[in-house]
Amino acid sequence: MLGQLWGICRYEFRMQLRKRSLWISTVLLLTFAVVTQGDRGPRHVPMEATAREVMGNWTVLFWIMLPLVFGVVLADRVVRDRRLGVRGLLLGLPVGEGRLLAGKYLGGIAATGLPGLLALLAAAGYEAVHRGTIATFGWALVGFLTVMLPGLAFVAGFALVCPLLVSAPLFRVLFVGYWFWGNLTAPRFLPSLTGTLLTPVGAYPASWLLGEPVMHAGVPGWLAMLRPEPTGAAALGSVALLLVIGVLPLVVTVLLRKEGRA
């Protein structure tokens, strides 16, 4: 059973990894971000700052932009089976619907996460030379595991499933709009999910990493119960919530498909 899951996951990983759009889009968007970051960006963090603060800033900068690429790239991974006419073929295999979707999910996360991890390691390399400490590599990994990966797991769950309902192009429009409204818009300006435990931009883990509230974490607003004080425990809770909720769309899809409704 695990062997089948591993096989599907590995296949999906290799397919995704060969998509040139994933790599070119990542490089383009990160270049936009690095060039336009301004005085408050990670390149301008004081020399006396710790490796943790430096890599926390790079993680935040990268993770503001990268989900756009990942959501867009992942949006067609499930709907394409239907479009290419291979869904019947896949259903004929001795692999359950759940395992098929789980393999796509895990493989997709691994493949889209890799460019993010490499970007962080590249930034860590630059900072290691610039600041003379290799601790930046360790904090790059921490940033990836606490901020990027849970957010990616959340985005991937919805990006794989929602296009079944609204088509991949329309999902992409809505997703980009959601990313800005639900993660980056100040809650005092507009009621939004920004700054809650449920923001895949990782407001809480990023606040923990940087040692100060960032990205409106805990700022009063809509859904007050999801806006606790940004502490280490709250960051852990946010990571757990993102991981669990990211899987929910897949579970619902599998259940509906078993009933023949999706």
Binding site: S25, F32, M65, R172, W179
Partner: peptide, 8 residues
């Protein structure tokens, strides 16, 4: 991604 990136 290009359009979304420019927009954001």
């Amino acid at each position: 991604s290009v359009v979304a990136g420019v927009w954001l």
